[in-house]
Simulated assay, not measured.
Amino acid sequence: MLRHSTLDTPVGPLTVVVSRTGAVRATGFTTDVPDLMSLVHPMLLEPVEPGDPGLVGEAVRAYLAGDLTAIDAVQVEQHTAGAFMAHAWRVMRGIKPGAPVTYTGFAELSGRPLAVRAAAAACARNPVALFTPCHRVLRTDGTLGGYRWGLNVKEWLLAHESAV
């Protein structure tokens, strides 16, 4: 059984879905749990009920309070059929706060410098926003690009990380 909880943030609600082991399976700036669960790979789907997010909630609160590395230790469970996307998500977790990269730079970090579209797809399909920080990937010209949860959220996250 998965647990979901919604935390208040300066840019609106953040819902986290956590497994029995405390690993994050889905996260988004929304209260719509079914929509959030639509991002999770079918192999990782289980029934979801409200519950305490435990250490994940503590990590989010610490991040919001300025400890930007608090979310780094949180375990995530992401699955995809594509080897590149799984690898790209692992690489994305290594992008440091305050040091965003472009889609081109992200493709290079992922070992496939010409796979800029695949790198962008890894960002778009990321089910665990914040913990796998797709918000730290920008367009090649340095502009924000897209963000599933709204450009205002992406802009706030980047400003929060650069201000600390």
Results as ranks from 00 to 15, higher is better:
Val18Glu: 10
Met85Gly: 05
Ala115Gln: 09
Gly111Thr: 12
Gly51Leu: 07
Leu36Pro: 04
Glu77Val: 10
Gly105Val: 10
Ser38Gly: 12
Cys123Lys: 12
Gly28Trp: 12
Asp35Lys: 12
Thr30Cys: 03
Arg20Gly: 08
Gly51Cys: 05
Ala163Tyr: 00
Ile95Glu: 12
Ala59Asn: 15
Thr9Met: 01
Arg93Met: 11
Leu44His: 06
Glu161Asp: 10
Ala107Tyr: 01
Thr69Gln: 08
Val116Ser: 00
Pro53Arg: 12
Leu109Asn: 04
Asp32Tyr: 12
Asn126Glu: 08
Trp156Lys: 01
Val164Asn: 06
Ile95Phe: 09
His135Asn: 09
Arg139Thr: 08
Phe131Glu: 00
Glu77Trp: 13
Arg112Asp: 09
Ala122Leu: 05
Gly28Asn: 11
Arg112Leu: 14
Ala121Trp: 15
Pro10Met: 09
Glu77Phe: 02
Ala23Glu: 13
Pro50Met: 03
Gly146Asp: 15
Cys134Gly: 15
Pro13Ala: 11
Arg125His: 11
Val153Arg: 09
Gly145Met: 07
Pro127Trp: 02
Leu130Lys: 12
Val116His: 05
Leu36Phe: 09
His135Met: 06
Ala70Cys: 06
Leu151Val: 08
Glu108Pro: 05
Met43Lys: 08
Leu138Tyr: 01
Leu109Arg: 15
Gly98Phe: 01
Asn152Thr: 07
Gly51Trp: 00
Arg90Pro: 02
Leu151Ile: 09
Ala159Met: 04
Ala86His: 15
Leu138His: 00
Thr15Arg: 02
Gln75Lys: 13
Gly57Asp: 13
Leu39Thr: 07
Glu108Met: 05
Ala88Cys: 06
Gly145Gln: 06
Val11Gln: 08
